[in-house]
Design a protein around this nucleic acid. Structure first.
Length: 173
DNA sequence: CACGCGATTTGG
DNA sequence: CAAATCGCGTGT
């Protein structure tokens, strides 16, 4: 899928190339592992809404709620292949090179000007939405353990719930 | 109400 | 390899 941000009519975005799944209260890596709180409220709501939170006091993380109401599951968007609004995204990223524009969950939120004001918003919103992009063969998607969840149980740390799309360097764009 | 720390990034 | 930086979750 392509993630597209609308900033006063200007479109920023690209293909989602890396995600992680956070799978409910039984997943000790998931914020909902400690139950329903003000922060995790959105994850317990309807699917198709953004869960955006602040981490380390300075970076935002973009998630999409995926499961039915009362089932707190979400997908963290970890990287994009930048396509639209490159100049503006580069400005939003302090002039970082193209290769470093959106290759991390905090970076892509910076590039797309995503913060907690978008928390709870629908993925059909005119501010930030998803578009179906060209289909890719499953062989181009590899899995890996999730990142930065040292607080989780060893079993949950080891699950391959991280998904990485390897784009063909020649056909990028 | 105080404390500890985080689904990261950056620069040294 | 450690600092940045602040809101959330937990316990007093």
């Amino acid at each position: 899928m392509r993630l597209v941000r609308n900033i006063d009519g200007l479109r920023l975005g690209g293909i989602i190339t890396e995600t992680e799944a956070y799978v409910g209260e039984s997943d000790t890596a998931c914020h909902a592992a400690r139950g329903r709180t003000a922060r995790t409220q959105v994850m317990y709501g309807h699917p198709g809404h953004y869960y955006v939170y602040l981490i380390y006091g300075m970076y935002h993380m973009l998630n999409i709620v995926t499961a039915e109401e009362h089932q707190p599951e979400a997908v963290l968007i970890r990287a994009l292949h930048p396509q639209q609004g490159l100049e503006q995204m580069r400005a939003n990223r302090k002039g970082a090179p193209l290769s470093q524009l959106t290759n991390g969950p905090g970076k892509l939120c910076q590039a797309l000007a995503i913060d907690r004001r978008l928390n709870g918003l629908s993925v059909t919103s005119g501010e930030l939405w998803l578009e179906r992009a060209e289909a890719v063969p499953e062989t181009k998607i590899r899995t890996a353990p999730r990142v930065g969840i040292g607080y989780a149980s060893t079993a949950d740390q080891q699950r391959h719930w991280r998904y990485i799309l390897e784009l063909d360097p020649l056909t990028r764009g």
